[in-house]
């Protein structure tokens, strides 16, 4: 099983896979994919959702359910990582403080990162970006100070609170339409003018919930790994 036999077999498998993928991709018409659904969405999205960024219209409108699943996967991963790490040794290695430059930069960057994250979340329906990207920046804002001074831990309890309420908010927004006899996640509120900050109905609300959830989840997840990771 181990040794040369395994390596040779794996390399043969690899070669086979490359040849197969090459043949397959070669047969695909590049730049001329059928774009059946894509074309229809491009022509209908502005009218149906009011979002100028069509990728956002898909993520929160047409495929909003995927996005709920996506947020859930981060939540599952964070929960599972918490479960796995909860018995780990609490990092015996002395945690070196980050030094002057990192500390000063962390303090300086914090407000800017929070504002930038908030900006990207709130403009997700207009420009590239959105809840995931903005949430990741928010998480970075809280994570960099942790690198700078590892002894002051992240407040996991607050993070969990934000996370729980943001996740609940997403589902409650989705369920709200059920009460009016519509399907789950049907957008509501006025669509506004295409391209305005206050447009696209309930989609920006969803992105806000996603941004908060992703931010608190990623920050909590990375903090946990740092907290126990010092040891190995």
């Amino acid at each position: 099983m181990h040794g040369y036999g395994r390596t040779t077999a794996s390399l043969l498998f690899l070669a086979g896979l490359v040849v197969m993928l090459y043949a397959l991709f070669q047969a695909l018409p590049f730049g001329a994919a059928p774009m059946q659904v894509g074309q229809e969405i491009v022509s209908r999205a502005p009218g149906e959702t009011g979002a100028a960024n069509i990728v956002t219209a898909i993520l929160l409108g047409y495929r909003g359910f995927d996005t709920l699943g996506e947020v859930t996967i981060l939540f599952v991963a964070a929960t599972a990582a918490g479960l796995i790490l909860s018995g780990a040794g609490a990092g015996d290695l002395p945690k070196a403080p980050g030094g002057f430059i990192l500390k000063a930069a962390a303090d300086l960057l914090f407000p800017f990162l929070v504002v930038l994250g908030a900006y990207i979340i709130l403009h997700g329906h207009l420009t590239p970006g959105g809840g995931f990207q903005g949430g990741a920046i928010m998480a970075a804002a809280f994570f960099i100070p942790l690198l700078a001074s590892p002894t002051s831990p992240l407040n996991h309890s607050t993070a969990a609170l934000v996370e729980g309420f943001a996740g609940t908010a997403f589902i409650v927004i989705g369920l709200a339409s059920l009460m009016w006899g519509e399907a789950f996640l049907t957008p509501f509120l006025g669509k506004g003018t295409l391209g305005d900050l206050f447009s696209a109905g309930s989609l920006p609300l969803l992105y806000l919930a996603i941004g908060l959830k992703v931010g608190s989840e990623l920050a909590g997840l990375m903090a946990r790994i740092v907290e126990v990771g010092g040891k190995s």
């Binding site: 709920l68 859930t72 929960t79 969990a160």
Partner: peptide
Amino acid sequence: MTSGANTLVLPIVLPLLGAFLLPLV
């Protein structure tokens, strides 16, 4: 589409909602 069909989503989102709330509960 009947309103009954809309409840199809419940077996997915109710446990999901519960999972989000469980750490708070």
